[in-house]
Design a binder for these strands. Structure first.
Lengths: 184, 184
DNA sequence: CATAAATACTACCGATCGGTCGTTTGTAAA
DNA sequence: TTTACAAACGACCGATCGGTAGTATTTATG
């Protein structure tokens, strides 16, 4: 087993990120990992099965240690936002967003995986924020942070503008501290 | 000529919005407008040529009258943001964002059209904001507004959450007024 | 080294992709 | 009614799509 499953999933993520679900072909993936197309079906029953794996890997990488939530919420939140922003900046796009836009009702497994992915992101951020504000406010602050970071990938994709992502990361952190102060 | 060019472009926009550039086929488009695939090539030289037309139509629809910029900038800005938010809410997704993520270097005409589309949106918003703040600040406020509205489409696509879009529209308008007050 | 199980391979399937061909049809001017 | 032109058509092209069948090759185990 020269090529590991994680290598294939990581390559699939790159393709989904750059070309979307429909635009990325199994042949592309095979070439990228140095295998033949048929060999991919040893590890994955079909193309759609790649999506949950890709998103699970991304989630795992984005939050390397959930231990961070032990400390003060401000530190945890700053680390979480920074992690997401860094991930989006290095990848230049968000796989989740590309898949969210790209998968339809004909791929229900993929669609559900996308839901779970963003639901996880939301609740992860919201859980941190509850350390400094009531749940209801935390939910909206988390959602706002998420969509701003995701939206910032647009300017990276179109104008190669990475500055806005950094500014956005700082802005959402500031918003959180202000929301906490207002809720106190 | 029973089917007008604008009808085809509008149908193409719907397909690009829902399925992306790679996911939307000329056969889909033909079926949607009630023509045969070959007939589409009477009006458009190839698939890529649809992209500039789609984005131009969207831009035209988003800002029906540039006359709005004549009045006070707050009114114009609120109308502009409201127009964008309404457009994104009814379409459930942003064609521009889907295309920005979807088109690659193999379709340079489409890629350039996407650039121009978002550049137009940016400068349009920024131009309005210069009525109440210096250009430099207006640019960042406009960019921030744009990415927040675009990012809000994610929650519509994934969770069918239209509430966040409305909240975001109000938030970016408030941000603009505060930026103007701070710059005064 | 022999053997059995993974793993990767070649070759192929029907379907669909973007796009082109020559032909038929609708329509408006003469 | 004839003529002429654009619009729509059916049929087809090579390429690629996701996926499968059967075979060769590697790898771990005895």
């Amino acid at each position: 087993m020269k090529v590991t499953k994680d290598q294939i999933v990581a390559a699939a993520r790159q393709l989904f990120r750059e070309k979307g679900y429909a635009g990325a072909s199994m042949q592309d993936l095979a070439s990228l990992v140095g295998l033949r197309k048929a060999s991919l079906y040893m590890r994955f029953p079909n193309k759609e099965a790649l999506v949950p794996e890709v998103l699970a890997l991304t989630l795992r990488e984005t939050f390397p240690d959930a231990q961070l939530m032990a400390g003060p919420w401000q530190v945890a939140y700053e680390a979480a936002i920074g992690g997401i922003a860094a991930n989006l900046s290095t990848g230049k796009r968000c796989v989740g967003l590309h898949l969210a836009y790209g998968v339809g009702d004909d791929t229900p497994v993929a669609k559900e995986a996308v839901r779970e992915f963003f639901q996880s992101l939301r609740t992860f951020l919201s859980d941190i924020l509850t350390g400094g504000m009531p749940r209801e406010i935390a939910d909206t602050v988390a959602a706002d942070a998420l969509i701003r970071l995701e939206g910032a990938t647009l300017l990276i994709a179109v104008f190669d503008d990475t500055e806005t992502m950094q500014r956005t990361a700082r802005a959402v952190i500031k918003d959180a501290t202000e929301a906490a102060r207002a809720a106190r």
